[in-house]
Every structure is written in C-alpha cells, then in structure tokens.
Design a protein around this nucleic acid. Structure first.
Lengths: 273, 273
DNA sequence: GAGTGGTCTAGACCACTGT
DNA sequence: CAGTGGTCTAGACCACTCC
C-alpha cells in the first residue's frame, strides 16, 4: 500500500520490524502457544512487504525458538519448555546415597541427574554401551596410554510429548569398569544409585568433582537429537570426577539447551578465626 | 560457468557450501587471521553464484565470529581472542586475601576477578556508580522493601588492541554500602582487595557464594559493549554472596562471551567414615 | 566519489506437508 | 494434488568506508 523505500533503514529493517511486530503480538497474548500463523504470502500482503522478506522474519523467529514448524508445513507459536535447574549440591547428596540400601537409592541414576529431564515426566530412555579408544582430550584427562580402551555410555531420554530431549555421554577407563562385569552390561541400566555407586562397586571413592562449563551453538545433529531450534545456544558441561587418590576416573559430557537450563554452583567459604 | 540448478539442494545450500569452503580455506592456513577476503562480487564470480548468495555466506561467517569487518568496508579473517578460565576456587583465595596487608592485596579488585580480562594486558577501565531502585528480581534476592535503594556499580574494561572487552554489574544494598562513605565513591576504584574486602570494612563476612549460570544470545547493545560478533552466545553468571548470618548481601551480573570463556567449578566431597 | 557490504523486490523453482 | 516454507537469481538501491 505505502510506497516502498528500498535499501536499509538504519537500525531497523523491514524484516526485523515484522519479527518485532509478531513477537509483540505473542507477548500481548493475541497469538498463544500452539496457534497457527498466517502464511508467509498472507503476512507479506498484510505488512506490505515481499514474500521473501516475510520468510526471512519467520525463519529468524524460528531460530530464536519463538516459532516452530517444518519446512513446507504451517508455522505455529512454540510451546516453551519448562525451566530446569541443575545444582552442584546434588553431587554431595549422590555420594551420601551410595551407602544407603538399594530401595533408598532407587530413583537415582546417571539418567536423572545428568539428562536434565525429571523422571516423573513421560519419557523413553535409551542406553548405548561401547568400548572405544575415545577422543584424545578425554584420554589425556583419564591418563590412558597406548592401547588402553574406554567404556563409553551414551544415554538419551526423549519426552513423550515432543517437549524436548536430554542426553549425556560418560567415559570410564575400560580397565576400571571391567572389574565389575555388571558395569559393562547396558541391559542393567538404569543403575540404582548412579555413577558414584557404580564406581563404589569397583572400590573407588570420589573426593572431588569438577564441572567445566562452556557454551556454543548446537551442531545440526544436536539440534535433531535434543529437539532444539537453531539459534538457541547449548550449555556444555564436562563433569570430571576425581577419586580420593587424586586421579580422574570418569568424564561426562552433558549438553544442556540454554533456553531451559540454569546451572547453580554453591561455593562454601571457610570461616575466619 | 556450470549451469545453475535453482532451488535448495537438500542438506547443503550454495550459501552454506561457500561458507564451508571459506572456513576450510582458513583452517588450511591459506587465509590467515587479519587477511582480507575478496569482495562479495569477486567471490560470487569465483564460485559461480549470485552476489546476493555470497553476501549471505559472508554474513553467516561474521555472525559465527570467523570473519569480521564493518558494513561498507572490507572483510577480513577475525583474530581469535585468547581463552579465559574462570575458576570458583578464586572465591576462597579472595577471602583469604582480605585479612592481608594492603600491599599484598594490591592487584586484586572487583575488576580483575569479574571482568575476565587479565590486568597485565593493556586496557582502559571505567567505573560508574549509581543509586537506583534496581530490577525487581535483584531487590527480592537482597530482601529490599519499599523505598530501599541499591548501589549499582558498573564496571567496563576495554582492551587497547580492540581484542575484546569485559564488564560486570554489581548491586549492594545502599543501606549497607553507606556505612562506609568510601564505598560510595567511584573515584576510589580500583579498590584493593575486591568486593569481599569492601564488605569487610562494613562488618560483613561472607560464608557462601552462589553462581547462577545461564546462556543466551547477546542483545545488540551487548554486542557493541563487549565487542563480540552476533551469533556468539553469552554465558551469563549471576553471582550471589551470602554473609555468615545467612542473608544475601551482593548480587553481581557478569556477561562472558562464550567464544573465549570456560567456567570451572570444583565441588569438594566429604570423605566416608 | 568510487567501492563495498547489506537489504529489498520480483519472479522462479524445489522439497516437503497435509488444510 | 495444491499449498507452503525455503532458497536462488537478477536488478536496484542505500549507508557506510576508505581499497
């Protein structure tokens, strides 16, 4: 309708203006989670821009996790996943639980602790055990040399309602894990009591856990696996467990979608005097 | 040269192929950090695509932090900023330092600890002190009610060589900070010994520090302030300090560019028996 | 002022979804 | 099958930098 002024408008382009308008419309509640959007052609006509520009605005909002929908299908407002908090005090709790009875330990697992999806929700679990050389940086941390092998345990948990997924990858020195044949059997998962209890069965007590936290964008594979939109960063936690004798005995890599994760680390300080 | 087949090629578009080719060229060392790239027109001719498509590939790599350069100016390979590690054991060290002499404390500051840029590098510091009501969530954490005010201290550190910047924002209850008039004077920064020593001067000893870590994309303002490319996530650390009497006495918000930051949190576990 | 990066329109096409 | 989202080309234009 209005005559188009081609070229960029400083600090505010047609595409970003359309995106802002749509996002405001969502925040006002005119568009609710699950609602379908008009087609790109309709939006283009409605806002007086080219179909191409409307498409760019839509794909930007999809990347930001505001909208979702398959290419070729309709677009709708994304249902925001529930927030999850991951607190390091659970490391001490998990250690305390190791010495309890099996019933009391039930419900605990590498699964619950590391995937970031609560057990009470409907979900589908999957465990894959492999004996591999493993990545070089993990080998160095665990002090492996020559032909030493690693037991890699990949765990994925998928929500029944497509509301996201979680996963973790754990590395143990094969020489350590093989001391207890049960530890090599994926069929025995979920192991009651988690990794700390598994290590206990081969005579290892943990003294210290380090979390190394970085963030980066997900790879296309991770987008598929974790069911996250592109444009949402991934918090990557590398958990390294040290035994009381000082050596690293387990490395876990845990990718956590940043749009639903808060990490909380408490550091206790020694009192003066 | 080759006839173009329009439309998307599944899993690999012309734009992303060009981007991959350029990135591979950088990794092979043919293009070194600081080197200028051909113009978009030259790239388009060279790779047999439209100028428009070449532009899209370039802007994607700029967002990813691989390339950089102003709009309207030439594009060059970005110099990767040095990696920085931020370890929670420094909280205990900072507490230990509070009781030392002033000379021994020198070099310590809210600055060094929180900005993520080492003091030995050339830099320019800037402190802004304000008395404000502050955001609602911070007020709740610090237990403020009614007309209570906050002292907000904004600190920014900028590298001399344009190789990045750091910043942090600290909130103290005004009623607490005003017990020592020196704490209200931005001219006295950098304060030798950091925030923990400042709190010591008003009779507060810290017992516990919580770091709440999330990640999200930077706002346009933050891109400018922190000198980071869009498309690089931001690790956002909210540090909450608790006194020995159990109440929260300081809140610090520290945004850390994820392309140069690793957070390390050590959790010590109690021994069995 | 020429050169350059970035954005918009217009038209065409593809791979996919499913009112 | 039509409909839809996504991408490519071609041509035009603007704001910016500085070859």
């Amino acid at each position: 309708m209005t005559p188009k002024t081609p070229g960029p408008t400083p600090d505010s382009y047609d595409a970003s203006r359309l995106a802002d308008a749509l996002q405001a419309s969502i925040e006002r509640g005119e568009l609710r989670p699950g609602d379908q959007l008009p087609t790109t052609a309709e939006l283009a006509a409605q806002y007086g821009v080219n179909k191409n520009t409307a498409s760019k605005a839509i794909s930007g909002l999809k990347a930001a996790g505001v909208l979702t929908g398959p290419a070729g299908g309709r677009t709708w407002v994304r249902v925001r996943p529930p927030q999850i908090k991951r607190h390091n005090v659970r490391y001490q709790r998990e250690k305390d639980a190791v010495l309890l009875s099996e019933e009391e330990r039930a419900g605990y697992g590498v699964s619950e602790a590391d995937s970031g999806i609560a057990v009470r929700d409907l979900h589908e679990d999957r465990y894959v055990y492999e004996v591999v050389p493993g990545p070089e940086d993990v080998r160095r941390i665990l002090g492996l040399v020559g032909e030493d092998q690693l037991l890699r345990r990949t765990y994925t948990r998928r929500h029944a309602a497509h509301a996201g997924a979680g996963c973790s990858m754990s590395y143990l020195p094969y020489s350590l894990a093989s001391l207890n044949p049960d530890l090599l059997d994926a069929g025995r998962e979920p192991w009651p009591g988690g990794t700390m209890h598994q290590l206990h069965t081969v005579g290892v007590e943990l003294a210290r856990i380090e979390d190394h936290v970085v963030a980066s964008m997900p790879t296309p594979d991770e987008q598929r696996l974790l069911d996250i939109p592109p444009g949402i960063p991934l918090l990557r936690v590398r958990k390294i467990s040290y035994s009381v004798t000082g050596e690293a005995v387990e490395v876990s890599d845990i990718p956590l979608p940043a749009d639903r994760t808060e990490l909380i680390y408490t550091t206790e300080l020694e009192r003066w005097q």
